[in-house]
Nucleic acid binder design. Sequence first.
RNA 1: GGAGAGAUGGCUGAGUGGUCGAAAGCGGCGGCCUUGAAAGCCGUUGAACUCGCAAGGGUUCCCAGGGUUCGAAUCCCUGUCUCUCCGCCA
Length: 416
Amino acid sequence: MIDLKLLERDFENIASKLKTKGVKEEDLKEIKKLFEEKKEIQTVFEKYQAKRNSLSKEIGLLMREGKKDEAETIKTKVNDIKVKIEELNEKLKKIEEKLNQKALSIPNIPDSDVPVGKDEDDNVEIKRVGEIPVFDFEVKSHDELGEELNWLDFKAGVKLAKSRFTVLKSEAARLERALINFFLEHNRSYGFEEVYVPFLVNSQTMTATGQLPKFKDDLFKIEDEDLYLIPTAEVPLTNLFRDEIIADLNEPVKLTAYTPCFRKEAGSYGKDTKGIIRQHQFDKVELVAITKPEDSDKMFDEMVECASNALEKLGLAYRQLMLCTGDLGFSAAKTIDLEVWIPSQNRYREISSVSNTRDFQARRGKIRYKDGKKNRLVHTLNGSSLAVGRTLVAIMENYQTKDGKIKIPEVLQKYI
RNA sequence: GGAGAGAUGGCUGAGUGGUCGAAAGCGGCGGCCUUGAAAGCCGUUGAACUCGCAAGGGUUCCCAGGGUUCGAAUCCCUGUCUCUCCGCCA
């Protein structure tokens, strides 16, 4: 959630920054107004409560002394106040609910070094790494290769579930597992501690990291339960610290986890319908870090480096992209995407996304640390290292041979 | 799924209508003592919001949400979770 006090204090600035992310100024104006109204009502409300409390105390004392009549007089007085309190309470609750609902739907403020832009076409390439492979034969797409080699069974996925689910067979299944192991080990070498988490989480958890309330339609929900399938391990990993005050954050918290991820992919019908680029279920190894505010920039670079290096070890060509304001995710203040070369599409495709959310998630989830006597909000960061399914795609396509087979990258051989 | 018990501060745990944000112990922090440490002694030690330039106030929070009452950690209702036993199960 954005800082409402900051919004109140520095409205013009915040509004202009959020405008680049598609937030209407009138929505922010309304939030500011609600916030100010709320505080006003609250002040009056609390004054009445204070009055009630002190009078009630008096009644107690009078009763003890046996002065029943005097007590009765005060009682009628308190009764009048009670009516007022009830009234104000109702008003306050209504306004708080409205404010909360509105404020939770406002995305994070982009960092000032994030390029301003409308959509993905305005993202800025930072660098390209690795040689794009040249083939002296007609390259096949991963879905062609997958069917020919009996690695990917699209029909079986549809039979078991529905479209955008796929069954991996033989070498592909083993390669998937090898990649998970490889990434976890790789991340561990960067100091990220491996964690294993639930794949189902409750609505409070989803709210803290920003999936709820706004993106309900993208999530799979369990019927009759307050449980959702996670869209990324970022959700459980970050929420490990929800409502916590971390005593010592001199060393950042660094975690990594493998989980499957579940996404409805609402609004992406017709996109990437072939192959396994866009699935309802996919594997991902995630990085999450929690830092002091002053340490988050450094951690961000470290996470980009970690994910990039994994691609280099696999010998895959990729590029780094700084997302523009219009393409930035809801919770992110800044994001760098890694895109891997996909020969059959003759272009780079997203394989990792590293984001700094600053204190946006921390405020929602009340994740704080002790800074001397004070409790301060932490910064939270997350990034994929890496998306496993898309790495499988990249390996299949980049490592294909003329006779329609696929070589296994050297670093993976010990896992297979 | 069935039966029972429970949920209080960082932890253990007392508190059954008013003076309770809450005893006591442990832990943490500061000090005394000590060459240093331990022990011992003394002091201190929750969070959120809000008013105020500040000093300093106020409100809320004893699992959550309702209710009774002038007044609720304490009484009533609903829900959630935890533990124990049984059933089922990898």
